[in-house]
Design a binder for these strands. Structure first.
Lengths: 196, 196
DNA sequence: CTGGAACGGCACGTGCCGTGTTGACAAGTG
DNA sequence: CACTTGTCAACACGGCACGTGCCGTTCCAG
């Protein structure tokens, strides 16, 4: 039957991705080779190349397959609490193994490989962004945000600092830091004794 | 004389870095090999390895050597205008060749190689950060910013979105976008009809 | 039973790695 | 003018991973 074939194929695909994750965790993405992946998976190199055109896209698939937990937005009615919840969950994922280093390597690879960058945006960044923007939109409709509140900018101001810490300074993404960012965006930074 | 030797050595160092930049511009960092650099520079591989322990650190030196223009902070007395000036200059550098793609690749490499990450922070990120923080500090002393204004957070909220666009979504860093970010931090985002 | 597709295993030629060796050449020394 | 010393380009090396062929096997589909 065709089902059996498809099942076998899926099994191999899954085995290869699992081997990719195992090796990436053990030795890091930098030392990940397709030969090693194939060997670890008990699979011929052809079987890998038949499914993925490059190491980067294989790694992308493998890492994104971990995201089954999801970062869907809750809607308790309190936009700030909901954002805090999502950001905290994201920080918990990014801040520690196995996700953190893998995601970091993935973004690193995206800087060299345009295909990886495009796929990462399409399959992960954009859905997550749309998710958050939808939640912000709802909050605006409910009057929790001013009608002229700049949702896109808010999202980037909330996300940017987290990525900056993850990718550049590699400082920890603590609960307290998330609160400070949220506070700044939603309660203002009080730049001057009296606002202009 | 020893001076002649030192001069010769410096010349070779400079020649190698220049060849590195040329090749990186032509073919991208991904295809940059030390063999190719040595060949282009008319130099033996030993001469490269004697100066740099890895491709990443060579690339770091080469890219940072371009930054002679500098991003020093002006001090016109108006903190927002000064920040806009610096951010605009930074965006002009990052947004277009040759700096943009090279800096992007450099950060990408830093995600795989801890030594590159550490050196990048120490030699570029931290000085720039200190620079901006000193300017913010001065503004606070002059009463342009409230005494409880969170300088560190402000810096990360200003920088984060720019890096987010550069590294993740790869959207352009326009003048208008910089204004929106500055506006959000220094004039508030007016989250609600009346601020809490 | 037969054809086709996918497979593991193996070997190939290529490119780059990082290292070792050699001989040419220049700078300072007696 | 030899002579030492140090630096260099050039070449060769073993090792590894690349991406691509080919082989014989296995497993359904018709």
């Amino acid at each position: 039957m065709t089902d059996h074939r498809a099942a076998r194929t899926d099994n191999r695909t899954h085995t290869i991705m699992q081997a990719t994750l195992d090796l990436a965790r053990e030795a890091g993405y930098a030392k990940l080779s397709i030969e090693a992946v194939a060997s670890r998976a008990g699979v011929g190199k052809h079987t890998v190349y038949r499914r993925w055109p490059s190491r980067g896209l294989l790694f992308l698939d493998a890492v994104l397959s971990l995201n089954t937990a999801g970062l869907d937005h809750p809607d308790t009615g309190d936009i700030v609490a909901d954002l805090r919840e999502v950001m905290t969950r994201a920080a918990a994922l990014l801040g520690q193994p196995p996700w953190g280093p893998l995601y970091q390597d993935l973004i690193g690879e995206a800087q060299h490989d345009p295909e990886v960058a495009a796929a990462l945006n399409r399959r992960f960044i954009e859905p997550q962004t749309a998710n958050t923007l939808a939640r912000l939109e709802a909050a605006k409709d409910q009057g929790q945000l001013a009608p002229d509140f700049d949702l896109d900018l808010a999202f980037e101001i909330l996300s940017g600092p987290l990525y900056y810490r993850l990718l550049i300074t590699q400082q920890p993404l603590t609960h307290a830091y998330i609160d400070r960012v949220l506070q700044a965006v939603f309660a203002g930074m009080s730049p001057r004794p009296q606002t202009r």
